[in-house]
Design a protein around this nucleic acid. Structure first.
Lengths: 193, 193
DNA sequence: CGCGGGTTTGATGATGCTCAAGCCCGGTGG
DNA sequence: CCACCGGGCTTGAGCATCATCAAACCCGCG
């Protein structure tokens, strides 16, 4: 499972095996069963999780009890409540497993120590952050300027892999539309083709 | 004007004066008059701009010719089409000045060299990226789960400083609502209080 | 004084939400 | 092996929000 993380890192920076051996100890494995929580609103988000297998989601719950999914994470993705992780404030998000999952966890302090010890990891996270921003911007554009149908088509195109693992009503939540609307959108689209 | 950048950096990392002297040469000043472009769709985004004074915006234009504002940048903010800047692909965004502005520009190559030379700058940009992600997530939440009124109130609360500098129809565009709706929202709200 | 960009106001219509009911299918227990 | 249950998806009807189109208004500026 560490192998997956290593392969991910060397796509962005040329980390040697020896350097990676220094990184490893900072990541502790963890298994999560479907529906188990990694983080609940109000708790402090102590860890950033790298997903080796399975699928997680982060979401908020509004005053009316509706869930709003912020992120899905399948293999090779990181997930956390970044604000809580960085500041130590209580989390505003929930994170739970949609399917049985295996993770690698790293806490805030270790993360800083690790980057000091292996500067290439800081480069890695800097690049990762930049890519994250690009993705966030694309999602925002799509959310602001598209109709329900376009948003859905955008999603399954951009995240074909994720749309397999995730029930439909969660995709609706991610897109900010109601499950009924998504159902209708899918029907209309299939009738067109 | 470099002073402003320095003050910004030392809020995140403890960069010495000497180190900052090494950073300076990588940033070239530039002035932009109101309505001038820093970047047009289709061009490659060569620079990341740090805003010393004034106000810029980045936006996309959809098939119907409607503008969708992605970001405002006032003093102390960075702005660029991150995707184009990183990949060298043609930009999908426009960036122009809402008011006369002064900027500090740094291109991609120099940016990499600078971080090599002064590793603390890499830390700085890593931290900056993380904060950017937090902000993007908050905006996304707000966009997905709130009504037009709540989104507007969110905006003027979070970005009181920006809402001063920017005409109302641009705020509407940023929020993904029509200028007419924003006008009505404001009216209703002022009648309530 | 008149022009023009930006904002406001009104009328109308579309998109998508809510509520409610029915359906499909896989899992469980008799 | 079959009946039953329940979660998720679908379908329908009515409704709220917000977009669009159009006109009027306001105000700074040439």
């Amino acid at each position: 499972m560490y192998e997956l993380l290593y392969n991910n890192i060397i796509k962005k920076v040329d980390l040697t095996r020896e350097e990676f051996e220094e990184v490893k100890p900072f990541y502790t494995p963890k298994k999560l069963k479907r529906k188990q929580f990694l983080l609940q609103e109000g708790d402090v988000c102590k860890y950033t999780a790298f997903v080796c297998d399975g699928c997680l989601r982060s979401y908020t719950v509004d005053a009316d009890g509706n869930e709003h999914i912020l992120q899905f994470a399948i293999a090779n993705w990181f997930i956390s409540d970044m604000n809580s992780f960085l500041t130590g404030e209580p989390a505003t998000q929930f994170i739970d497993a949609i399917a049985d999952s295996t993770l690698l966890l790293c806490n805030r302090i270790d993360s800083d120590i690790m980057m000091k010890k292996v500067p290439k990891m800081e480069t890695y996270f800097r690049i990762l952050g930049q890519h994250h921003i690009v993705a966030a911007q694309k999602r925002l554009s799509s959310t602001i300027m598209h109709t329900a149908e376009q948003k859905y088509l955008d999603f399954i195109k951009r995240y074909a892999d994720i749309s397999q693992h995730v029930p439909q009503h969660m995709i609706a939540s991610y897109l900010g539309i109601s499950p009924e609307t998504l159902s209708r959108v899918r029907k209309q689209f299939s009738e067109k083709q």
